[in-house]
Amino acid sequence: MNTIEKNLLKEVADIHETPEGAYNIRANGKLDSRNTTANIDIVTKEDKSGIDIIIKPGTKHESVHIPVIISETGLKDLVYNDFYIGEDADVVIVAGCGIHNCGDQESAHDGIHSFHLAKNARVKYIEKHYGAGDGLGKNVMNPTTIIELSEGSYLEMETTQIKGIDSTHRVTKGTLADNATLVIHEKIMTHGEQQATTDFTVDLNGVDSSANVVSRSVAKEKSFQKFVSTINGNAKCNGHTECDAIIMDEAVVTAIPELTAANIDASLIHEAAIGKIAGEQLVKLMTLGLSEAEAEEQIINGFLK
């Protein structure tokens, strides 16, 4: 693996050398390396591109890293990754995609991740998207995440896209059974003429199921962001969705909430706030000796922390 590829790995998965525990590193559309453990198996799919990650019931304190990196220009990669998490397991899954495109052709990675959580399983899922390279070729990522939560299971998803992705259309769908919980934190920063659309659909089908979908984003220059959040409350449940965005320059942000309560005991809330950085925040930091640009940087870094 060369330095560019190592750097991409560091950005998307915080991996410096070989990660601990189970991992599967995919580079330029091919398997680079893999490790399985006694409790976590990784199997290559035979009918299509991708892998199955099978986590045994009761597995605790283990992690799986499945980063994807692309450093060849013009490569279009499509993978299907299925996660099967056994009953009572409690694991951390780190995915992520890094593209370094120095050429003039479009590089793309479309990942379709499906999570199947058995009863009372818990997962923390961390996903990072990063693009680099100074070529004319565009970096495109269209991740799809399908989450099926059985009774009493819990999934927390942290998804971050801070730099370098020219176009992204993220689709996330969650289906929750009784007492299941889904928490999603999304962080996005776009600049230049980047486009980012995120589309969340959560079906709260189980009694006492709950979902919290929170997006914080910063849109700079001429970039465009669209946040669509659909929550369907089909049982006694709690759903909350929040979009908090800072716009700068000539950027455009659209937030579209869609809440449907189909049960008298469904409780659903949507909050959205879009605006520029508050002038008083800049002034306060300037009275501490920061220039306006430094103040802006601090405010954005804090907001996306």
Partner: peptide, 18 residues
């Protein structure tokens, strides 16, 4: 006083102290 989403007490004290 101005509120900041994301900046902590320590962040602000650090910025204040320079």
């Amino acid at each position: 006083p101005v509120k900041f989403k994301g900046l902590t007490v320590k962040d602000l004290l650090t910025l204040a102290a320079g």
